[in-house]
Write a protein that binds this DNA or RNA. Sequence first.
DNA 1: TTGACAGGTGACTAAATGGTCACCTATGGT
DNA 2: ACCATAGGTGACCATTTAGTCACCTGTCAA
Lengths: 115, 115
Amino acid sequence: MVTYGGGVTDDDLVFKALADPTRRFLLDLLFQRDGRTLKDLESGLEMTRFGVMKHLKILEDAGLVVTRRSGREKLHFLNPVPIRIIHDRWIDKYREREVSALLALKAELEEKDGS
Amino acid sequence: MVTYGGGVTDDDLVFKALADPTRRFLLDLLFQRDGRTLKDLESGLEMTRFGVMKHLKILEDAGLVVTRRSGREKLHFLNPVPIRIIHDRWIDKYREREVSALLALKAELEEKDGS
DNA sequence: TTGACAGGTGACTAAATGGTCACCTATGGT
DNA sequence: ACCATAGGTGACCATTTAGTCACCTGTCAA
């Protein structure tokens, strides 16, 4: 049974968080290397510290980023669990087999082709 | 190398499309059963036909939904490829192993528990 | 203990987004 | 031919959201 309730649900925070390119870029940076500080992340973006902080808060509230304090610094880590849950919502075992095969084929072709 | 360019990129359409609960619900409906018409999908929502149509257009532009015309009807199908691409962006082989195990364990516990 | 540094809050403005409506086109049945 | 049905467009309004700034708190080192 599929239902559609109103109000702010848990997954809503995740999808809203992913909707902004700056936040996705922050996730990319953390995917590349974990445990960064705000200062570190800020230096890679053309935006004030406040903007970046706001984005990090949204990512943290959504559970996509988890943090740990160390002295006066705050370290940020990527949490992949919500991403996997999104995947499992619309991709079942059958589709997963098909899609992985398709993407693998695509990657193989592009390797030969160069584009 | 991770870069962060401006402008509207391809994946931007996908994430923006997923950011709305009504659109996610539409994907849920199509995940449950493919090949529905606008009329069909509209009947499950408390919204005017125009609202639903707008949402379907956004999903279609993002490539999350593909369509086929049949007479005066337009049939809608779920395309799982963009979802899988999101997954692969932030979940590599190592993390995938860990996360799947974690979620499987969680599902097992909740089965016994009932919650 | 004083100054520099890392992080945090609330208010504000400009732009993007969700939803509706009046109006239009095309297909199918009788 | 006719009318009901399925789908489509552009304009419009209310709400949400991204980004900045003035100002505040806590930590480290000399």
